[in-house]
Design a protein around this nucleic acid. Structure first.
Length: 133
DNA sequence: AGCCTGACTTTGT
DNA sequence: GACAAAGCCAGGC
């Protein structure tokens, strides 16, 4: 039987605030991941649309940053379904090999030509309008 | 602490 | 339509 020592209030507060900070950051990332997971197979969306849907309008770069960190998360995040607002596969260089992004899209029935999604406006899936809150 | 860099987007020239 | 600039904000150095 070990005796647990109670941490000092100062230490406890430090730990707590650290946790809160971490969690809020994590929840933003998690929220992004969850939205991305909701993208139907064969559809695509844009970084800005996700940011907009999460309320952080204008922080589309952060969505890209979240994708950057999405490689080792479970369940998996279909990051290849996220392209920029012109349907361009701007994130392909972060896959290995870079051709994997296009490959994954084509396996899902999305045609890609010269790093661009064909019929992008038809395949575009807007989380803000598709997700009922 | 401060400056630089982006898997972005919008706006102005 | 191309190009520049500016918001955006977490991380790296």
């Amino acid at each position: 039987m070990t005796v647990r020592r109670r941490p000092s209030l100062v230490a406890a507060f430090a730990i707590y605030s650290n946790m809160v900070e971490k969690q809020s950051q994590q929840s933003f990332f998690e929220a992004v991941y969850e939205v991305v997971r909701l993208i139907p197979k064969g559809r695509v969306t844009s970084y800005g649309a996700i940011a907009n849907c999460l309320g952080s309008k204008g922080s589309s770069r952060m969505v890209g940053w979240a994708m950057n960190a999405s490689h080792n998360v479970t369940p998996p995040v279909p990051a290849h379904r996220v392209v920029n607002r012109n349907g361009l596969l701007t994130g392909k260089n972060h896959f290995n090999p870079p051709s994997m992004m296009q490959k994954l899209l084509e396996l899902e029935g999305v045609s890609v030509k010269e790093d661009k999604v064909l019929d992008f406006d038809k395949l575009f899936w807007d989380p803000a309008t598709e997700i009922k809150v």
